[in-house]
């Protein structure tokens, strides 16, 4: 049983397709993290801004990041679902 499990793990390790998928997930997680940091940074800038034009820009930027993150999380869920199946 133990050998079977080990073989299974080895097979997974050498499976390039799975390796790629795992890398993809890692990359996506990194991007989502960066987006979150960026969102915080812009939120802070928005709180400091007193210029209408800048405020509108930051708001647009925040909304874009929100949608991008939403998309990213959906993709991540799909990838995780695929991994389970």
């Amino acid at each position: 049983m133990k050998i079977e499990k080990l073989l299974h793990k080895l097979q997974a390790f050498f499976d390039t397709e799975r390796h790629k998928k795992r890398q993809h997930v890692q990359e996506l997680k990194k991007i989502l993290l960066k987006l979150k940091k960026k969102e915080r940074k812009i939120t802070h800038a928005l709180q400091q801004a007193d210029d209408d034009c800048l405020i509108r820009r930051y708001q647009t930027e925040l909304e874009v990041i929100r949608v991008q993150r939403k998309k990213g999380i959906e993709v991540l869920h799909q990838l995780k679902k695929l991994k389970k199946t």
Binding site: I31, K34, L35, K38, T60, V64, Q68
Partner: peptide, 13 residues
Amino acid sequence: ELPLLSLDALKAI
């Protein structure tokens, strides 16, 4: 720092 995604914000702005 996610330049490709920043493009979207610029387009929207």
